[in-house]
Amino acid sequence: MKKILSAIIIIATGLLTLAGYLFREALSPVLALFTDWAILLIGIAGILGIGYLLRMHILRVAKKQKGNFYSIFLIIVFLLTVISGITLSPQSEYFKDMILNVQIPVEASLLGVVAITLLYTSLRVVRIQGWTPLSIGFLSSALIMLILNSGLIGFKPDSLAGRIAGFIQRMPVVGARGILIGMALGGLIVGLRVLLLLDRPLGED
């Protein structure tokens, strides 16, 4: 009974959402309600997720696992942020500075590490992939895009050189679109499988 009920809810919601694109005026209020519910549920799930995050770090500290110092640090900072957010409100200059002056540099540093790692791994393209059509395509498009997008070379958009450059710049995009079409088809099938109850990710199969 439970499975049937959940199946009915899944199918009904999915079909209504799809129908909303066709009969938008008629179904607009229902769809707005659905989306609000979905956003609410997702928000709650996000809070639960943060609960799991805290639980994981508290357990790590309690069990004195390796790296528990970082967990202690995280718990302290988490509590500090929550308390200051509640007491000071997000509009507070202090709160704003505290968040952004930490978050922006930390995330930018992470991107810097990514850049260095990408530089390092780019050494290994041929070593790993060998000389294949795909690796040659990858290398050539990467080189062309890097040079054209660096701003060192400029072409007037309506000139012949500009048109050629534009054409070359679009080639990787064409390839990417091809991959994305395949992905979209795969995604469509995944969605339909869930809607048609051929696949039950939550584990009744």
Partner: peptide
């Protein structure tokens, strides 16, 4: 990045 790709 270009240099590294060429070096690779």
């Amino acid at each position: 990045m270009v240099l590294m790709l060429l070096l690779g």
